[in-house]
Amino acid sequence: MARSYLFIPANVPRMLQNADVFEADALIFDLEDAVSSHEKDEARALLARFLDEHRPEGVELYVRVNSDDDLEKDLRTIAPYDVNIVLPKARSAAIGNLTTLFKRLKRRFRVLALIETPKAFFELDVIAEDKMVDGLILGAVDLLNETGGTFSEDGDALLFPRNKLHYAARAADIRSIDTPWPRVKEGLEHDIKRTAALGFDGKCAIHPNQVPSINEAMSPSPDALYKALRIIKKYESEQTTRFSLDGEMVDKPVIEKARKLLDKAKRYGMEVGEDG
């Protein structure tokens, strides 16, 4: 499961060429907001050529498609490639319409639903439970434009949508992915810590320089991994789900959490050392 989702404008050759060197776990090629309406055709052609000749390996690939009349053109363009989609301004009805479209194209895409309208929050359960949907992404800028809230470092205006989206994703056992922080550097670390503390699985990035910080914050810390390793080792040697370690009681949920943490570290290629 990806920690970082980096948006790459599909109409910028240099960004496309270097997309896979920025260490993001997932790339979202953007055909929507990053591309002006008169450049859409050119961007689709460029993206198709890039996927033909330089498809990045070892990274999850998504395309943020348009939600309007361009949607079908976008899907036809990317249908031959092993990519999935981010659906902007996702609503339950729009996701329902995808089924028809996919049938017509004879190509089923997995969907990350970009939740960026207030109304979508009142149908999140339905969106999250849809079989095509693999995850929910919070799109804060558009959302706050509608709610009148401020995207600030204190994060107050996003407390409800962040929690609501994360809980809906958890309940449906799909990914919860936090909104990108709008500034490249200033305030980023603070915002990422909040994302991690709320329990999100991943976070979007709008600039490559945001990716290392996101990956680090969304990864288990070396200390936490070392502790998890010791919990699992003691559990395996004592064959009991209730014991004490360093004066702290360990029971089944703690063991399960430690196991999940170690699995996560393995997925990210992190080394779990015996010496912490």
Binding site: N18, F22, E23, V184, P208, N209
Partner: peptide, 8 residues
């Protein structure tokens, strides 16, 4: 540098 390639 703030160039992401150079930082990489």
């Amino acid at each position: 540098s703030s160039d992401p390639i150079k930082l990489k």
